[in-house]
Simulated assay, not measured.
Amino acid sequence: MASSELWLVSAPGEKNANDAWDKLNRCTGNLSVNNKFNIPDLKVGTLDQLVGLSDDLGKLDSTAEVVTRKLVTYFGEVLEDDKSKLEENLTIGNKDMPSYVTKFQWEGAKYPLKQTLKVLSEIIAKQITQIDNDLKAKSVAYNNLKNTLASIDRKATGSLLTKDLADVVKADDFVLNSEYLQTILVVVPRLNIKEWEQRYSTFSSMVVPGSSRMISEKGEHCLYTVTLFKKVIDEFKNAARENKFIVRDFVYDEESLKAGKNERDKLVAEKQRQYAPLIRWLKINFGEIFAAYIHIKALRVFVESVLRYGLPVNFQAAVVEPSKGSQKKLRAELHKLYIHLDGSAAGPIDTFEDSPALMSLGVNEYYPYVFFKLNLDFISK
């Protein structure tokens, strides 16, 4: 991927259409790679409408970025953080993010130019809300499935104290269909095996002698069976617990064990069934939300340029990609080129970023030209 930071810059146009563009390129030299940011002729409206829209678009811009980041983060989770796979799926049509921005073309079919700026912003806002709501619904459904499956798998792989014992035991380990007797399962610390084998029959008066045998070992524990009369099970459990032996709450039932295995198989099949359509939805809607996000940036550049430079509409917008480590020098060159546009910006280049007074007014990135930063770092490093 190209640079993850791009600058959207706009300056007044000149009589000769290419003069403003040529000046920008001469000024920036090898400090950046520049591309024209093509914004079509939009309906201007009144000054009051533009001022109100400027604030609304700022909020919409933030919302669009948040939803885009949310979608990309979730896309990464579904792909199980395979960053190479994620990057190849983050396309808009057939373009990657930097290409879409540097070769930006207004999508008139989605956002008709005959509409007012206000209506265009409302169309985009509605689209963003819809994608956000759909993302929430789809992620809840898929995550519930994934979490249920993960919970089953955790139980199957934990220690003998907590794991599901369905895969550990078999019918031969139990006395079945007896009116009086029941086989129970007891977890015994490996260090206490000798003590268990010597003492288990003393924990109650009605334990079947010689009925205990080890059926599994895992980590620091072993799993034993022991057969006793049903009426003394509670007494036996208490005595066992006092001696640090844990009786597992388990009753052997062939039908339940089969149902449990079938349930997992069904969940695995359902997860696989949902996976491909979810990936497809995420891919398509990344393209939709990112395109909406850049159209908001285009609207902001248009509105701010008209507010700054007046009518008739005549400005040159550009996508500026700073060369590595050149940001400060590039900023200084742009300042020199455009300082004449705004007398209030005549102080040193760092004044506006460092001035507490301006910061308190929320002005921490004010320049004599229209400027918006665009971060494309949607894939976390």
Rank of each mutant, 00 (worst) to 15 (best):
S3N: 14
S4Q: 14
V9T: 10
P12K: 15
P12M: 15
K15R: 15
K15P: 04
N18Q: 15
C27I: 14
G45W: 13
D48V: 13
L50W: 11
L53A: 05
S54V: 08
D56S: 15
K59N: 09
K59S: 07
K59E: 08
T63V: 12
R69N: 03
G76N: 05
L79C: 03
D82A: 10
L86Q: 07
E88Y: 10
N94Q: 10
N94I: 01
Y100M: 11
V101K: 11
G108Y: 14
K110V: 00
Y111V: 03
P112R: 12
Q115K: 15
Q115P: 01
L120K: 11
K126S: 12
D134V: 09
S139M: 13
A141E: 10
A141G: 03
Y142V: 06
L145E: 03
N147I: 11
N147G: 02
L149H: 07
L149F: 04
L161E: 01
L165R: 04
A166I: 02
D167P: 00
V169Y: 11
K170H: 04
A171G: 02
L176N: 00
L176Y: 04
S178G: 01
Y180T: 07
T183A: 08
I184E: 06
L185Y: 00
V187M: 01
Q198A: 11
Q198W: 08
Y200I: 00
M206F: 14
V208C: 03
P209H: 09
S212C: 10
R213M: 04
S216V: 03
H221I: 03
C222F: 05
L223V: 04
Y224H: 06
V226H: 00
L228F: 10
D234A: 14
E235D: 14
F236D: 02
I246H: 12
R248M: 00
L257W: 06
Q272G: 02
Y275K: 09
N285Q: 12
N285R: 12
A291K: 10
H295F: 09
K297Y: 13
F302Q: 01
V303E: 06
S305Q: 09
S305Y: 09
R308Q: 10
Y309H: 07
G310W: 12
E321I: 15
E321G: 05
K324I: 02
Q327K: 15
K328F: 13
K329T: 01
R331N: 06
L334M: 09
L334D: 03
L341Y: 15
S344K: 14
A345S: 08
G347S: 07
I349W: 08
E353V: 05
G362L: 01
P368N: 01
V370C: 00
F372A: 05
D377Y: 00
